[in-house]
Amino acid sequence: MTPGPLEGVRVGVTADRRADDQIDLLHRRGATTLHGPTMRIVPLADDAELAATTRALLDAPPAVVVATTGQGFRGWLEVADEWGLGERLRAVLGDAALLARGPKARGAIRGAGLREVWAAEATESSPEVLEHLLAGGEGPLAGRRIAVQLHGDPMTGFLAALREAGADVVEVHVYRWEPPPDLPAVDALIDAIVGRDVDVVTFTSAPAVEGLLQRAETLGRDEDLVAALRGGPGGSGVLACAVGPVTAAPLDRRDVPSIAPDRFRLGAMVRRLEEHVAGTPRP
């Protein structure tokens, strides 16, 4: 049989959601995997925090709403329907100035029968949205309520800049991330990264990166972990492979190099890894 493009490559997988799909995809290409989910996603319908935030926005509607991802925006509306709040939420969103962070968010807005007043030209461009708001694109920010639908990246700098401008910012976390369900599995993954017993570690969300770093810090191994990850690509360390720039942001903040595809999809991430492996001399 012809060896797969990832034959002999050892991959650490940090994902919780769709982990089985990713592992199957990697195995079919010849890789071996070590799974250590570094966080757990709370299903939307079970998220009491999101329900409370949604009701608060219905009682005190925002002037501006920023939709950051299509999947997250759709999920918010779908779960609001389950709670019996969908009609009221759509009315509130329809009265607000809806901003889209990119084409996917814009498509989700229009798919819900709503209309954005402005959309970023670049794909998933938080800086472009922030520049628009701070430049007065939707009027003065001081004292105005702005709801930001978050998905993955906490967007700390984005939110801080709006608050510094005087806005009343409401964070809408469409998924809530909890500590990992299986700490021994995460610890084993950290051992493997530090010991260079895996060649690559994959990340499909920013919280997955944060979860790995936080657990390593708890164990007193964060410096060793970061040192191992800083060794790649092209070095003797472990390569970080992210699904996109939003996911890679916590790595960037720690000066950890990474590779990512142009399209933010699981299959595209695996293909990007294949391209990297094909272009790297192997022992």
Rank of each mutant, 00 (worst) to 15 (best):
R17D: 08
R18G: 02
A19R: 15
D21P: 00
Q22V: 13
Q22S: 11
I23T: 14
L25P: 03
H27M: 10
G30P: 05
A31Q: 11
A31M: 12
A31K: 13
T32E: 07
T33C: 15
H35R: 14
G36P: 03
P37E: 03
T38Q: 11
M39R: 10
I41M: 07
V42I: 15
V42N: 10
L44P: 06
L44E: 12
D46T: 11
D46V: 04
D47W: 09
D47K: 08
A48Y: 01
A48G: 05
A48F: 02
A48Q: 12
E49T: 14
L50D: 04
A52G: 03
A52N: 04
A52Q: 15
R55W: 00
R55K: 14
A56G: 02
P62N: 11
A63V: 01
V64K: 13
V64N: 07
V65M: 07
V66K: 08
T68N: 06
T68C: 10
T69M: 02
G72N: 06
R74T: 15
W76P: 01
W76K: 04
E78H: 13
V79I: 12
A80W: 13
E82C: 03
E82L: 15
E87C: 01
L89P: 02
L93D: 00
A96F: 05
A96V: 01
A97F: 01
G102R: 12
G102D: 04
K104N: 02
A105V: 02
G107V: 00
L114D: 04
R115C: 00
E116R: 14
